[in-house]
């Protein structure tokens, strides 16, 4: 195995990890705190991509930093939509059996995708300027687009910020308390009614960022989120529902297995991920870092 291949596998692992983690971290955060498995996550990912590409269309021939800022603006817009969804829709089903949550979030995903179809249509959108502007790097004979490095760095930076928010701030302490024991948190006077929309918005912001970051290297169509969200749900189960550590570990493992698998066993690329999931769940039924009882 030469160095070029090793470097390819290393960066391909990180790139796929950064795409996956933007979805899985939000899924786990929302499940961990709100107790809801958000089936609309993939739709928010798609919405992030569409909002960002619309913002992109207003700018041509601007410095790359402007495009970079637009990723954040688009994700914040989608995050705010998420903040509105929690009190208006999700709050009504917390006390109902789990299937109502699944039905609600699944319907929400259909509604969001249909709204996208209504406003943006079904034809693909694309933006290439930003990607081309940044150029390529050559690392040990392997050409790697600089944009990928920026996307990876952005997601890792966001993860670090999330870590500080959750573990070094007061609001993070409250979120962790609510996630560990909701009743106890309420009885200690933590106002979960203000906490929940924030957490949901944070999860949605992260996944919208994943969608927005896909713009430069992907065609934006309604199906953009379908493959990655399917894998993201598998990872969330593998890592342990509600566990942030599990989401990170799971995304890294899957990113690596895929990068390696495509190289050496392209025939079974997708199957490898599910075989891995099967093995992990047979040994640890609650996932790698799961601490929750099975809810259903």
């Amino acid at each position: 195995m030469n160095v070029g291949i090793l470097i390819s596998i290393f960066f391909n692992t990180l790139l796929f990890f950064s795409i996956l983690i933007s979805i899985t971290i939000g899924l786990s955060l929302i499940f961990g705190v709100l107790g809801i498995l958000n089936l609309a996550h993939g739709a928010f990912y798609t919405l992030g991509a569409y909002v960002a590409i619309s913002l992109f269309s207003y700018f041509t021939n601007v410095p790359p930093i402007i495009y970079y800022i637009l990723f954040f603006i688009a994700s914040i817009i989608v995050g705010i939509i998420g903040m509105w969804v929690e009190p208006t829709l999700l709050r009504r089903v917390y006390k109902l059996p789990d299937e109502y949550q699944l039905l609600l979030t699944f319907s929400l995903s259909l509604v969001i995708l249909d709204i996208i179809r209504y406003f943006w249509g079904v034809m693909p959108y694309y933006h290439y300027e930003f990607f081309a502007m940044l150029g390529n790097s050559e690392i040990a004979g392997t050409i790697y687009p600089n944009y990928y490095l920026i996307a990876i760095a952005t997601v890792i930076l966001l993860l670090i910020l999330l870590y500080f928010l959750l573990f070094k701030t007061k609001i993070g302490l409250l979120i962790r308390a609510a996630s560990m024991d909701k009743e106890m948190a309420i009885s200690l006077g933590i106002n979960v009614k203000t906490l929940y929309p924030l957490v949901f918005a944070l999860g949605i912001f992260l996944c919208a960022m994943g969608g927005a970051l896909a713009i430069p290297y992907s065609a934006i169509t309604l199906g953009i989120g379908s493959e990655v969200t399917a894998i993201a749900f598998a990872i969330t189960a593998m890592g342990g529902l509600g566990s942030l550590k599990g989401a990170i570990l799971g995304s890294l493992i899957v990113g690596f297995v895929r990068a390696l698998g495509v190289f050496y066993f392209p025939e079974i690329e997708l199957v490898v991920i599910y075989i891995l999931m099967f093995i992990i769940l047979s040994i640890k039924p609650y996932g790698l870092c799961g601490r929750y009882e099975r809810r259903v």
Binding site: I9, A259, P266, E267, L270
Partner: peptide, 22 residues
Amino acid sequence: VYEGWAPLGTTDFTPHISAILA
């Protein structure tokens, strides 16, 4: 020399492209 398969709606083809180039 290489037979790669990816599902419809694939976001990230880079591992396949690396593998083909190699």
